[in-house]
Design a protein around this nucleic acid. Structure first.
Length: 574
RNA sequence: UGGGGCGUCGACAAGUGGCAAGUCACGAGGUUUUGGUCCUCGCAUUCGGAGGUUCGAAUCCUUCCGCCCCAGCCA
């Protein structure tokens, strides 16, 4: 296993290797040297919000590394702050991790279950003279901490006797003191250039009911004290986290040295994911939800796992994205185009096609028999013949997309226009013979065509082939549906790029949701169920909304549009 | 201006002294009953800059420049 990375791909083993990354290198080395026998990682979310695509990256690293080396990955709630956390989030987090395709097995843990153990270890530190109870109020503590360039000063309580510390800490736990009146602090070095080492708080008093512990505790451990303890208790070997904790690693290691922990995990940091046109902080996402700027955590425009799921993304696509972006230490911003590519790539292969007209324009086939309806064969997925075919009804009056007709077409417009012949997919060639206009506005209200009966199914016996093939729907047999067209939530690539005094909400895209109330769909879609996915030919990938869609009043979400070469040409022409 | 990190194509990202992978994006062709998919080709004489070591440097040394993180009793 150790020299596996040096094995060049061979014709026998053409499997593309996962992209190399420095964390894997470290693990491979530690396994080879025997320092580590079994890889144990953990994904430690705080249940104070929903998981987003950034968490998906972390999850794929945490679980991915463990799986790759036959180890285990724990799902552990870092529920050490009852004032921010909620039951709702713990349930949602489990659902999302599972949906992404990861399995923590029996390793579901809560930091709050370790409170007693951590308390005992804190007592151990106090006895060793490594921790003390400090009475400084928050603002004083800040003053004593010093600044980036100036060392801090010792707290006047720093040299309390062990017995006094023990007594005070015990009474803190018993609830004798008000919120925020005292802390337990590690005794390290107030002059350290690393501010995290200037006697950091280990416990604070918070008289809040905990979602699992109820009122059993009124002191809660701080992140730095808790995280390493949690990892050690669980036998974690590699504690993978994001870059901003790099400055905390000396403290993580220090605590592990002081407490009688059973093992010493190694913390390794990697860069968190940033995505263009996307805000990723839970605080900002919460703001969007609370202020009603989106419909909820699962609004399809949200970068949350639940939002993307509702939007129609697949777990496979998200996993593939996480693999493609790699793992490194440099701050970066990935273009959403890559995510969209992963989604299209996955959906293209697995999802059936259908025809839907979002912006209907009536087409009348003058030479087609009145009252006749034909059921024509349509392939479900040209990428996968095993998906079979279906029937679509054709008759004298049809709908096509408004965009697919132009009275006076520019160069390179191949679609329908007066005198031009096009193919209706799986149906017939039609040639435009005239239009009806609204006398008031001049707007085209209907298009008249003649069809060629010899081209049934879409092929001409003489071999001619129109430049354009268009989707369509039978006017009478089509069904109505609401279609929600989503676009980026923000108008700028970089959500931090805002004017002075403004915040990211000034960047919200007013067209991030455009609702089409009466789209016309081929009738085969009538029984579509929430979560069903398909490609509306020439338009994009869509899925049935799991919240608002009902039989008889269907709602579709646009997951992502198809690549649109014509739109690019138009842009260039204008 | 303290400390910790990071700088390789428009965006990600391999590469760890032997002559710049891959993916997305973009561009040009081809196939096509989706202007989709697919296929082919193109896209860093250069690795933040400048010196140096070496037969040889993105990789080593020196120096400079730029960006990110840290002064919560949040995580």
């Amino acid at each position: 296993m150790a020299d596996e990375k040096n094995t060049p791909p061979t014709s026998q083993n053409p499997e593309p290797e996962k992209p190399a990354n420095f964390i894997r290198d470290i693990i491979v080395e530690e396994l080879a040297s025997g320092k580590v026998k079994k890889v144990v990682t953990r994904f430690p979310p705080e249940p104070n919000g929903y998981l987003h695509i950034g968490h998906a990256k972390a999850i794929s690293i945490d679980f991915g590394m463990a799986m790759e080396f036959g180890g285990e990955c724990h799902l552990r709630y870092d529920d050490t702050n009852p004032s921010k956390e909620d039951r709702e989030y713990v349930d949602a987090i489990q659902q999302d991790v599972r949906w992404l395709g990861y399995d923590w097995g029996k390793h579901l843990y809560y930091a709050s279950d370790y409170f007693q153990k951590m308390y005992e270890w804190a007592v151990h530190l106090i006895k060793a003279g490594k921790a003390y109870v400090c009475d400084l109020p928050a603002d004083q503590m800040r003053e004593y901490r010093g600044t980036l360039t100036q060392p801090g000063r010792d707290s006047p309580y720093r040299n309390r006797l062990v017995d006094e510390n023990l007594d005070l800490f015990d009474r803190m736990r018993k609830g004798e003191f008000p919120d925020g009146s005292r802390t337990l602090r590690a005794k390290i070095d107030m002059a350290s250039p690393n501010l995290n080492m200037r006697d950091p708080a280990m416990y604070r008093i918070v008289k809040k009911s905990h979602h699992r512990q109820g009122d059993a505790w009124c002191i809660y451990p701080m992140y730095d004290w808790a995280q390493g303890n949690e990892d050690a208790i669980e036998g974690v070997t590699h504690s993978l986290c994001s870059l901003e904790f790099e400055n905390h690693r000396p403290l993580y290691d220090w605590f592990l040295q002081q407490a009688p922990v059973p093992c010493t995990p190694r913390q390794i940091e990697f860069a968190r994911l940033n995505l263009t046109y996307t805000v990723m902080s839970k605080r900002k996402l919460l703001e969007l939800v609370q202020e009603g700027l989106v419909s909820g955590w699962d609004d399809p425009r949200m970068p949350t796992i639940s939002g993307m799921r509702r939007r129609g993304f697949t777990a496979e696509a998200i996993r593939s994205f996480c693999e493609k972006i790699g793992v490194a230490k440099r701050d970066s911003m990935v273009e959403v185009a890559l995510l969209e590519h992963c989604v299209r790539d996955d959906l293209n292969k697995r999802v059936p096609r259908a025809m839907a007209v979002l912006s209907p324009l009536k087409v009348i086939i003058d030479n087609y028999p009145e009252g006749q309806v034909e059921d024509l064969d349509a392939v479900n997925n040209p990428e996968d013949p095993s998906m079979g075919s279906r029937k679509v009804p054709f008759s004298k009056v049809l709908f096509i997309e408004k965009d697919d007709f132009m009275l006076d077409p520019p160069k390179k417009f191949y679609r329908l226009s007066p005198g031009r012949e096009v193919r209706l997919r799986y149906a017939y060639f039609i040639t435009c013979s005239g239009v009806e206009k609204d006398p008031a506005t001049g707007e085209v209200t209907a298009v008249h065509c003649n069809y060629d009966p010899a081209t049934r199914g879409g092929a001409a016996p003489d071999g001619r082939s129109p430049k354009s093939t268009m989707h369509w729907v039978c006017a009478e047999r089509s069904i109505s549906a609401e279609v929600r067209l989503y676009d980026y939530l923000l108008t700028k690539e970089d959500p931090n790029d805002v004017a002075e005094g403004m915040d990211f909400k000034s960047l919200i895209n007013p067209k991030s949701l455009v609702v089409v109330k009466d789209a016309r769909l081929e009738p085969s879609l009538a029984n579509a169920k929430g979560g069903d996915k398909c490609q509306f030919e020439r338009l994009g990938y869509f899925c049935v909304d799991t919240v608002d869609s009902k039989p008889g009043s269907l709602v579709f979400n646009r997951t992502v549009s198809l690549r649109d070469t014509w739109a690019r040409i138009q842009k260039k022409q204008s």
